[in-house]
Write a protein that binds this DNA or RNA. Structure first.
Lengths: 198, 198
DNA sequence: TTGACATGCGGACAATTGTCCGATATTATT
DNA sequence: AATAATATCGGACAATTGTCCGCATGTCAA
């Protein structure tokens, strides 16, 4: 068993798999599209898909690649621009929540496939997750160094912040509790960010 | 006219399903036991299981019923005893994290089956979840009323607190990051509870 | 050209969750 | 007691994810 040699599947077959998945997902919703259906529609065997993507989550991750890249750019831009750490944290979290709002079906699929057992690549070790976690952690560290926030385990805090707005609970808050995206951003700021700053 | 069953699973068949599931889970781990296997071992059809429990998560929820009851008792006891709201919140969260530590496999199975789509009973609407959410919310409200914490949306805060220590991220923090249960409790307190109190 | 070896595709197959319906047992009616 | 109505059981079946292996195709050496 070999891994895909280049970072992205840029060969013709990978391309048709991704395009087909995107088309089907646009039409039916990613959660309603099966790997079998993707294989049939793309005119390839299922094995051909699974040789490139470990599971449906990994396939979705690949589909989201460009979107994640843009989110990372936004986050990096926020961090790079002038402003207080407090403001930057709020802006980054707002971006992340908006990202979740925009792509919640895909992110849910990625989460569903995520595992912490075995030595398989976990969601938490994927590039996008690590990047966003690191942005939050660095900002928190900066706040602590500047003595505008009390010491804490910033690694833990960043992980749990992200976990606190996972797709399942986000959908619950949006659909059942009828909170708007704006409200959720505001509540998060109020409950998690503001209290940290002295 | 049949007399009503007071609660779930008090008839003979439900009992054998639950006992069988427990025995198999003890032996192989709940995630390694299939519904088919449970049915075979218990000597009933799969339909008989699904007629009583909507899915594997609901079955696990039923198995955890007594455990949840004890957790609720502990939480109620903490709230009832004298002490500051701050102390009570820390104690309750510590209990919840210990509960997660002790039963993480079952809780993961419950989470995996949870859904926010459709009108099916979601995990967030189950009795145990609602109880624990309410305990946290009430304590937070008490702190706000007593002016020892700033106003916030306590409903949101309680939901996201629970979400922040979901089984997936908990396992990641324990197994990959090698944080101990005690550390996680301490970090949580430091990052989420303490900053609220001034 | 040919044969040995490697690559990797396709789809059959296994495992699992969840549904459905014919068969059976139980209760109600006369 | 006989029969109709109702409840419930068992397991076959469908749908989906993920694995595996036979086979076709391509490469290279002699």
């Amino acid at each position: 068993m070999k891994e895909q040699k280049p970072k992205h599947g840029t060969d013709a077959i990978s391309t048709v798999i991704l395009k087909t998945t995107e088309a089907l997902a646009d039409r039916y919703g990613i959660d309603k599209v099966s790997m079998h259906q993707i294989a049939q529609t793309a005119g390839v065997g299922q094995g051909t898909i699974y040789r490139r993507y470990a599971n449906k989550g990994a396939l979705c991750m690949e589909l989201m690649d460009e979107k994640f890249r843009l989110l990372q750019e936004h986050a990096a831009q926020i961090v790079g621009q002038p402003g207080t750490v407090h403001e930057k944290l709020k802006a980054v979290l707002s971006e992340q929540i908006h990202f979740l709002e925009s792509h919640v079906s895909y992110i849910e699929a990625i989460h569903d496939a995520a595992t912490c057992e075995g030595k398989k690549q976990t969601f938490y070790e994927s590039r996008p997750y690590r990047f966003l976690h690191q942005v939050l952690r660095d900002l928190l560290n900066e706040a602590i160094t500047a003595k505008t926030a009390k010491p804490m385990n910033t690694d833990f805090t960043a992980h749990t912040w992200i976990a606190s707005i996972n797709p399942k609970v986000y959908l619950y808050l949006r659909k059942k509790k009828r909170y708007s995206e704006k409200e959720i951003v505001s509540f998060f700021t109020q409950s998690f960010i503001d209290p940290l700053f002295l």
